[in-house]
Amino acid sequence: MTDVRPRIRLPRSAAAGDSIVVKTLINHDMESGQRRNSAGEIIPRQIVNRFTCEYAGVMVIDMTLHGAISANPYIEFEAVVPASGDFVFTWYDDNGEVYTSTESFTVA
């Protein structure tokens, strides 16, 4: 996939130890492998099959995605922020490509 652009939404601020809502979106067709082209041949599957999020080196969520996740996968979850640090988001494509995004977060 060319031009894959992850987007992350974090709250503006949080107190140390709070559980914050993290929203992520990445543009990807998520070709499910169920569709057929006009010639009746199955279009091969190409999806993001795994997503992970770490905060300050600690695993927050590790998600396995199947073909039934919609195009442009949106993933929302909660993370605990004991102190300021970096979020590292990683998406793994079927074609071997890995997309990463890093966001710094500061606790009040």
Binding site: V60, I69, E76
Partner: peptide
């Protein structure tokens, strides 16, 4: 993981 908050997720399927 150990860094997760409340066990909740939202996505589109």
């Amino acid at each position: 993981g150990p860094g997760a908050g409340n066990a909740m997720v939202a996505t589109r399927i």
